[in-house]
């Protein structure tokens, strides 16, 4: 019985939250890694792209809610998501036209593009502030739980409860669908293969008649979609605060680098690795130790690291990868 309770507690406090968080990070890291693969720079504006897309989605959600349109048990934000994606795609395409294309044509050093992305980050940050302000916004509606703690206890008769939030389940399901669609696109369609070809060998792609500007546009549209979806899911699961989207940049970069920059499969693995490490390392294991070793009375919470240092986990993972395998676990672009 205690073993069961321990398993339920681990599921409830570690596995479920980490899976949802991992899915969000994976989607974010996929965007970063695709941009890296095609445009060859680390996009520091990605976090603020996520924030902008989410802000637009929230505004549309509020409008829909005011008009009484909803999805029943599902959050209304899903209905607003396409508008957010479209707006973000337009914004990043304009950005590319106004900023990045110039440096691409010049064949500028990647670090100049990184610098330009910092300027873009500033502008996008300002836009998001302009659109929605800097405060925390709640926009989740619909059914809150798929399984709540009480009904789980009644159902199983265990002492330990288990909750599965709608947003958590939704995050994982949507992320799985998006990843499936992305991989289908990259591996099965001519445009997707052209993207991979361009990422693999730009010059040869040109010789084969692949239009680089078309590939770049496609990449931005996909990255904007991924960013908006990741941002909305993150916002639904936690809450929307623009600054959090700047902070999430570090775990997203860590995930993309762990997986190997430019490697989509690696980005997904990296996202879950970072998320599970972060949750597991900042979770107080005292309760679970209580189930597994009833006699043991340790001092403290058995928490390896306080939650306020969760970003340190991403950082340490990043450092370890840089030290021992700079190309990432799944071999991304060379160093």
């Amino acid at each position: 019985m205690d073993i069961l309770n321990a398993i339920v507690a681990i599921l409830n406090f570690v596995v479920i939250p980490a899976a949802a968080y991992g899915a969000q990070l994976a989607l974010g890291a996929l965007g970063v890694t695709l941009i890296y693969g095609i445009l060859r720079f680390s996009n520091f504006a990605h976090g603020d792209t996520m924030a902008f897309g989410t802000a637009i989605t929230i505004l549309v959600t509020w409008a829909l809610q005011a008009a009484g349109i909803g999805l029943g048990p599902l959050p209304t934000a899903l209905l607003a998501l396409p508008v957010g994606i479209a707006a973000t795609a337009v914004l990043v395409l304009l950005t590319d036209r106004a900023v990045y294309r110039f440096y691409r044509v010049q064949k500028a050093a990647p670090i100049i593009l990184v610098m330009a992305s910092v300027g873009v980050m500033f502008v996008m940050n300002g836009l998001t502030r302009l659109v929605i302000g800097v405060n925390e916004q709640q926009f989740a509606d619909g059914a809150r739980f798929v399984i709540d703690v009480r009904s789980f206890r009644e159902m199983t008769g265990l002492a330990e409860g288990l909750a599965l939030k709608t947003t958590q389940l939704l995050t994982v399901v949507i992320a799985a669908l998006v990843v499936w669609a992305l991989f289908w696109f990259l591996n099965r369609t001519k445009s997707g293969k052209a993207m991979r070809a361009y990422s693999d060998n730009e010059d040869l792609a040109l010789l084969s008649g692949i239009d680089p500007e078309k590939v770049v546009r496609l990449t931005w549209i996909i990255a904007a979609s991924l960013a908006t979806i990741a941002g909305v899911l993150y916002g639904l699961d936690k809450a929307f605060r623009p600054f959090n989207y700047f902070q999430i940049l570090l775990p997203i970069f860590a995930a993309a680098i762990v997986g190997g920059l430019g490697n989509p499969l690696g980005a997904i693995a990296g996202g879950f690795l970072v998320a599970f490490s972060e949750v597991a390392i900042t979770y107080p294991w005292l309760k679970i130790a209580g189930y597994l070793a009833p006699g043991w009375q340790p001092e403290g919470l058995l928490q390896l690291l306080g939650t306020e240092y969760k970003f340190a986990v991403s950082f340490v993972i990043l450092i370890v990868v840089l030290l021992f395998r700079p190309t990432g676990l799944f071999r991304g672009k060379s160093v």
Binding site: F41, L250, P326
Partner: peptide
């Protein structure tokens, strides 16, 4: 020591991380 000698973006990302961690440390 860790991030130099690799691709130029890596230093940027590593410093982003150390910056956040130092500030978190001062806060906590």
């Amino acid at each position: 020591k860790v991030a130099l000698g690799l691709r130029s973006d890596y230093l940027a990302i590593a410093t982003l991380g150390i910056g956040e961690i130092i500030v978190a440390m001062l806060r906590n």
